[in-house]
Design a protein around this nucleic acid. Structure first.
Lengths: 167, 167
DNA sequence: GCTGCCCTACTCGGATAAAGGATGTCCGAGTATCTATGG
DNA sequence: CCATAGATACTCGGACATCCTTTATCCGAGTAGGGCAGC
């Protein structure tokens, strides 16, 4: 039961991308430097997000990353599943069917109770994440940032690194 | 986001232990054979459960494992936390505070929104597991096992391997 | 002076090494049973 | 015949290799912009 650091990085990056204007564009190197993490490693996760069609990659010298959808349409669950993989954390190996003298398989047509409960718990977990969008997150940050300092830092950063997307 | 196989093994073992009589006792080798898993590896997890005081270990030639509490007092959450560790799956590294020109720490007295949401989701996950006891699980299995075949297999197995606990 | 072409430099993308944790194995400490011996 | 002491064999417990997933890195493919030559 451990989530990789990539999840946190990915979420923060998507949140940053959501904060810049419609045609904004940020290269991976800038995102990595801003968060103080390894560029090449962050690229890996950004590529994953790109394959999941959460962010869009623009190649070329003035390229970078931008959101592929509106912030309201990206949930935390989308990001977590993209980075960590969609399969559930608990995977029933059906060890109840193994052992020296296993009963025939049709005896176990009812799903393993343990598996059911574990998946139900995981469903609750995902449901919580599904209800939070990147837009919600941004709104919360704006509420907390009463003095506007965090936003100011972001603007300074954008000025230095941001590019414009010309479709 | 991946749970080790040890979790499944541990839960099944606790469920088996809950099914035998009050003074019943099963050695780890028997549990491993019944589930078709590595004995030494299962021992590792049984020791963990023992340290968490979910099961009780009895040394000696007629020793083995038994439950340390009533099945009603053991939840799935207890087992999962014992095996996987109590710390949350998502650990906020506060990368928002890192980077080239970080703002002073007091700016971030409000907890990271991302962290808050992730922990809330995990709380929901744990709450689901907390509400299911080993006794509930056993009751469900009995309901599904209309023909009593699974129970019969269990009895045959117990006859061969079970010992009695003399306090 | 303007236009078109080529070269360069910077971006993302996937394939490739290194590290950490999970998995699997081994040997040591302890105890109830069995055996043998003495009363 | 009974009790007791010792040896034995089987149990759990923790320390030790091994493997695989995760983490981190590097080099290659592609593209927009700038420079240069030609018109």
């Amino acid at each position: 039961m451990k989530l990789g650091d990539g999840v946190e990085q990915a979420i923060h990056c998507v949140a940053i991308l959501a904060a810049l204007p419609k045609d904004g564009l940020l290269p991976a190197a800038a995102l990595a430097e801003f968060h103080g993490v390894s560029t090449s490693y962050l690229l890996k996760h950004l590529q994953t997000l790109s394959r999941a069609e959460l962010v869009q990659s623009v190649p070329g010298p003035t390229g970078g990353y931008r959101l592929a959808r509106a912030p309201e349409d990206i949930t935390l669950l989308d990001i977590v599943l993209a980075v960590e993989g969609p399969e559930p954390a608990f995977r029933c190996k059906e060890i109840r069917q193994r052992g020296p003298n296993p009963l025939p398989g049709y005896m176990f047509k009812a799903p393993c109770q343990i598996n059911r409960v574990m998946l139900r718990a995981e469903k609750a977990y995902r449901e919580e994440l599904r209800q939070v969008t990147i837009a919600d997150l941004a709104a919360q940050v704006r509420t907390d940032d009463t003095e506007g300092l965090i936003e100011a830092r972001g603007c300074a950063f954008f000025d230095a690194a941001m590019r414009h997307y010309a479709p």
